[in-house]
Simulated assay, not measured.
Amino acid sequence: MTVFSRAQLSLHPLQPSRQGPHWSGVPARAWFLDMTRAASPEIFARITADNQPACYTVSPLQKPAVADPAAFTLAFTTLDDDLTDLWATRILPVLPGAGITLGEKSYGVVTVETETTTDADLIQQHTLSAELPQRGLTLRFRTPVTFHSGGSQFPFPTPDLVFGGLLDRWNSLCDIQLHPDTRTFARECIRISRYRMESRRVDTGDSPYGVLTGGTGDCRYVVWRGDEYWQRVVHALAAFSRFAGVGARTSIGMGQVEVLPERG
């Protein structure tokens, strides 16, 4: 069983400031890794090794839907048992009331909210439930999503790229493995029924990531043929996307996604 955790920090600037022109996911990732290294150099070395699958995501600073115009949120996920335990027991408990620095800006941590699930929970909920799976699901890409395809960036979430990528990430991280034919099912049996998306330029400043292009907005996918089992696996992967992100550069805040409830 593999544990997935998501934490969201509510932040308030410690001095008057506004967001700069560059993507805040880069300094947010640096802060996350600095905190991990300070708490456990061994875990830091392992999760940043060249052959290690991506086992965390970090969001950019975002404006919450609250009245306070100065407030921000910062979210991150962990998809590795040791990393999840490290943050849950040694780092998150001391963050409320503390200050953090992202690049050249400092923020006070007001609150920390967490949620946790496991691969076994998602399999139980989505593939073993007595309830019939819905044929449609809608993903909202809250930050730009892009994919590495054919040696270049591809900023549109086609079914095979979305669910094939989630399948790869699941099987690289989880104890419970999903069938590799899920990718074929996504390519041949899922269609996009509607979307409302726009392209967005992501300038990461002097970082090695350069300038990226991604798509934000809503995309609805429909299973138009195929066995019920595969529909269930797709819904499990969609739920996993909240923790794993979708596409490339999820460690700097791209591909942050949520599943929207189906209408009717």
Rank of each mutant, 00 (worst) to 15 (best):
V3D: 06
S5E: 13
R6T: 04
Q8G: 00
L9K: 02
H12S: 12
Q15G: 04
P16R: 13
P16V: 03
S17I: 08
G20A: 14
P21Q: 15
V26C: 11
V26M: 08
R29C: 11
A30R: 12
W31S: 09
F32N: 09
F32T: 01
T36Q: 09
S40E: 08
E42S: 09
I43L: 06
R46H: 10
T48S: 12
A49V: 00
D50Y: 09
D50S: 10
Q52V: 11
P53R: 05
A54L: 15
V58P: 10
V58Q: 06
P60S: 14
L61S: 09
Q62H: 02
A71V: 05
A71H: 07
T73I: 13
F76R: 03
L79V: 02
L83P: 08
T84R: 14
W87C: 07
W87N: 09
P93D: 07
A98N: 06
T101G: 11
E104V: 12
S106V: 08
S106W: 02
G108A: 13
V109I: 13
V112E: 08
V112I: 12
E115D: 10
T117A: 11
D119W: 07
A120W: 01
I123Q: 13
I123L: 15
Q124A: 15
T127A: 05
A130P: 12
P133C: 13
L137I: 07
R140E: 14
V145Q: 05
S149D: 03
S152K: 12
S152C: 06
Q153G: 08
P159K: 02
V162E: 10
G165T: 10
L166Y: 04
D168R: 14
W170F: 10
I176L: 15
T184G: 11
A186W: 00
E188H: 11
S193A: 14
Y195Q: 08
R196A: 13
S199M: 04
D203T: 05
G205C: 03
G205H: 10
D206R: 15
G210R: 03
V211K: 11
L212P: 01
T213V: 15
D218Y: 02
R220T: 14
R220K: 12
V223G: 09
W224L: 09
G226A: 07
E228I: 13
R232G: 06
V234H: 03
L237C: 02
G245R: 11
G247F: 01
A248G: 00
R249W: 15
T250S: 07
G253C: 08
G255K: 05
Q256W: 12
V257Q: 04
L260V: 11
P261F: 06
P261R: 07
